[in-house]
Amino acid sequence: MTEAGHLTTADIGDVPGPVLGDDARALARRIVAKYPTPRSALVPLLYLVQSEAGWVPRKGMREVAELLGLTTAEVEAVATFYTMLKLHPCGRYVLSICTNPSCALRGGKRLFERAHELLGEDCEHVTADGVFTLEEEECLAACDTAPVVALNYVFYNRVTEEALESMIEAVRAGRVPEASRGGVPGELREVSRTLAGLTGRLPEGAEAERA
């Protein structure tokens, strides 16, 4: 990571085995078929990798590169640009706390500090129990409900310190509380399926096979 917090290819981790199985590869073809050119599917396919592996290991990037006819370096260059693609193992729940001014003015910074205390030293990578990755978030475009906390990018409004504490406890106990809008957030793998476009319209059958 650079001093300013940007990721570099040195931050990319890896796994031993292959990431995308046959089912995932079939889905990959349908995602590619959404677009006029295959390369547009690059980020969606990295989300697909994240939905399979829980994060985006180098092996997954190599597989995506092969699927799209790109070099691994081209894929890495893109993957390191985007913060929602996790290049090292992370928690099943990404806990984001907005500390941009509209939230900070209403207690967002204190909330972030409190979360850090509760989750312990390594929480910005992954907590010891594998449940959380804590992120200090930029404005989530929900400043009307400041301070905003998100679990896997699903938002909770006007979160107090007490609410944050009970939320963390509940998630640890496997009882994820309902978000203010959007129901109960799934684990990062599941949300990554949504981000890959798998909950939206996908071309079927012949159309997908042509891709």
Partner: peptide
């Protein structure tokens, strides 16, 4: 926006309905 998991889903549903 990537962080709009839920608003994006509302949009996807509207698109599906429109089809």
């Amino acid at each position: 926006r990537g962080e709009f998991v839920w608003p994006g889903t509302v949009l996807e549903r509207a698109v599906a309905e429109a089809y």
